[in-house]
Design a protein around this nucleic acid. Structure first.
Lengths: 216, 216
DNA sequence: CCAGATTCTTGCGTGTACGCATCTTTGCGT
DNA sequence: ACGCAAAGATGCGTACACGCAAGAATCTGG
């Protein structure tokens, strides 16, 4: 223990995170340059300066690294946003606003990455799966906000929110993927934030009920 | 159109379903005989009388066929159970009872299969994923039960239920997987049906609220 | 009963996922 | 500063997933 101010990342941890970051960045860059289909795992590994085998110590599929470049810190951001909401707003509002906020127009850099993801079937699937990532941190944030709440309840609510977000994401991806030939009107419910909010609304009663009734 | 009474399965459909069934059965049988780790997809394919390539036209992973042998008709059974509940019971009760009922002590044949699944890491993961399967049919059943409900709402509720069930399943699998060395008390909340019901409870307010308020 | 259109099956080839054994790096106590 | 223990990186070998293109089976309308 040498430096308390730096919060002890440890050399090992820092190197590991650096490698993960390098892989993410390399994967995204190559995918944007050549198109997702023309990027091999070996290419990403080489660009990141590690062995191909090492790649699979960090990511268990080829697409994960690409998608992770966009979704890397989403989980912690959502959890932080929930924690940051003033204590007098209901749990439902806190959670829903946090999730919606996270899915409103990212920076320009992520814009084209998202476009690429929506146009590749494999990437779309992988991207939709990443919403599961936030369940853990979200459950913690909920439990933290509602002291005395059963941990299982917090986890269930978090999983429900994740599932709803996934549904919204899938609908949005579906609507953006099709050119124009879809039978009738897809009517994409407008923007993703709108759709996300609408999808999360039905869960509001569950969130508020659990928050006000800590111990059944 | 020749026979209306037989509901027109069609030769093609029947053969396809037969192949799927054969693959499931072969996979389960071999896995029980030799242990899950000692079964190659080539073995399953050969036992079912199809080419290895064909296997992957039906299942996209080695474990899927094994697990599918147990979970094959769960989705339709849950949906049917929801539909079968009398119209005067609330949506929450109907859905929760249906899901819990589906997860209460299956037949003796499925018993040892479940035991095998719980003792294999890969199978556990695959098994937990299959709960997603029922989201589609469940959403239909919910929408059918609550005329006028927004389809998106039905899908979100269904996804939430699936997510909650998955959490319950994961906790149960976790508690059964460890021998006895777990730090302190795992206290598995008793049986799976109990755990499942407790996990689904927090969603009840959302289900009932959506049911009574068709059009916001 | 036939011919065209679908849909399924299959072999092949490529790229991927991961267990295992080994070697290197990092962490830590003395 | 030293050396042991823990964790990571890497190479290798095996099995798997899946696109593609040919061929067989099934369905359709005449």
């Amino acid at each position: 223990m040498r430096d308390v101010t730096t919060n002890r990342p440890g050399l090992r941890e820092r190197k590991k995170e650096a490698t993960r970051q390098a892989l993410r960045a390399a994967a995204l860059r190559l995918a944007l340059e050549r198109g997702p289909e023309n990027v091999r795992v070996d290419d990403i590994a080489e660009a990141a300066g590690v062995s191909p085998r090492t790649y699979n110590n960090y990511f268990s599929s080829r697409e994960q690294a690409i998608v992770a470049a966009v979704t890397a810190e989403r989980a912690s951001r959502v959890a932080a946003a929930v924690a940051a909401r003033p204590a007098d707003v209901g749990l439902a509002d806190a959670v829903i606003d946090a999730v919606v906020e996270e899915h409103t127009d990212p920076g320009d850099d992520a814009r084209d990455a998202l476009l690429m993801i929506t146009t590749s079937s494999a990437l779309r699937a992988c991207y939709a799966d990443t919403v599961t990532t936030m369940e853990g941190p979200l459950a913690e944030a909920i439990a933290q906000r509602c002291r005395g709440m059963d941990p299982l309840t917090a986890q269930v609510l978090s999983a429900g929110v994740g599932a709803a977000a996934k549904v919204a994401l899938q609908r949005w991806l579906r609507s953006t993927a099709v050119p124009a030939s879809t039978s009738g009107l897809v009517a994409p419910s407008g923007s993703l934030p709108n759709l996300m909010r609408i999808a999360l609304m039905p869960l509001a009663p569950a969130l508020d009920a659990a928050a006000t009734r800590p111990r059944p």
